[in-house]
Nucleic acid binder design. Structure first.
Lengths: 205, 205
DNA sequence: ACCTGAACACCGTTCAAGT
DNA sequence: ACCTGAACACCGTTCAAGT
């Protein structure tokens, strides 16, 4: 069968399949992708430039998943706006935790996330931060969310049975347990810490 | 020349060369490594298990570079201790920024960094945090430092000429400029934010 | 326009053969 | 003990050939 009346492939279809492979296997290859789509590897190149472009399309997919509409108008609470955006940002990552390591391979800062950056800038400016501080605050949140997302992809029993922990560390590990939402709790705690810090610095101005 | 009286290779030598390749080229391959060491690729396997182990050895090299001795004894200021450790932690990453993406590929939490985790646990416990919060605080710092390190590997003109920025964002970008230490400033700002937040929560207990 | 088959350069790894 | 050469399976990509 040389060519069906309707194409068997599209960027859309390819990205879906690649994302599924990453979710289940932690990575993807062009031959593996082709097999999954019942196609020869060379066929993929009729729709995407190559492997790198597929990664970028997955990045865009995740970023587009972030909802910013409506959040954080002029109606006041900049702290709440930042918190909502941060959670939304991380939530979109958490849907495909194993994708994150692939995305950090190049750190190509596409402008896909600009909707969120704009919303954050508005919120921090409303909080009274100077322009230079606004960018730093956004960068801080960005670093924290990305780092937290990497934590999601880590194996569950990260710090299990560890003989080399001292007393405070051992107590901390015992208290945290291996709760399935340990990473979630840690994220909320960290976000709370950042917000407390921003509030303190906002008042200090 | 089949075999010299003294070995031409060692894990030490291999890691040095790999690190140099990553620093200059952003990545390394087994053939490239071998060529640089004037050796055939298969020779490498007499000293390391494979490519993955080389990556782990580079990770260990970076982590061992962190100095924790002496810092944060019982002598009081837990905030200062945390700040020193965070800077030390990030400094060791910043010496090989292009290595970070390779390290995040697996997020293997080796216990190489346990000296620092222990020191952090002691400091946060001294700050009055409950055991469960201690682990969350450490995780927060870990995420933030790792995310910041990735920022270091990013290209310089990250947010250059961007038409889609709104007014607050544009002002922020203009204020920050493309200072060579923009990432450094952002890190210090973020660390300050976290510390303010921890202090606020410490007092609140 | 889009799928295929064959080909290429490259990679990571293994292993018997050498000294 | 340690380097080599040959070999293997696999990968990403190209491109002329088909319809």
């Amino acid at each position: 069968m040389p060519r069906p009346s309707r194409p068997k492939l599209s960027p859309q279809i390819i990205v879906d399949a690649a994302l599924h492979m990453v979710d289940t296997a932690g990575d993807f290859t062009m031959p593996g992708l082709a097999e999954r789509l019942n196609v020869r590897p060379s066929s993929l190149y009729n729709h995407v430039a190559g492997r790198a472009e597929i990664v970028e399309l997955m990045r865009a997919r995740v970023m587009d998943d972030i909802h910013v509409e409506g959040v954080g108008a002029e109606d006041g609470d900049w702290v709440e706006t930042v918190a909502v955006l941060a959670r939304e940002y991380r939530l979109s990552y958490s849907k495909h935790p194993r994708l994150i390591p692939l995305l950090t391979a190049h750190t190509v800062q596409t402008d896909v996330a600009f909707g969120m950056y704009n919303a954050l800038a508005t919120a921090f400016a409303a909080g009274g931060f100077a322009p230079a501080q606004v960018l730093h605050a956004i960068t801080t949140l960005d670093s924290f969310v990305l780092g937290s997302a990497l934590d999601l992809a880590a194996p569950q029993e990260v710090w299990a049975n560890t003989p080399r922990a001292n007393e405070p560390m051992r107590a901390a590990l015992a208290a945290a347990g291996t709760a399935p939402h340990r990473a979630d709790d840690a994220f909320e705690f960290g976000l709370g810490t950042l917000i407390s810090g921003w509030q303190a610095r906002s008042r200090a101005v």
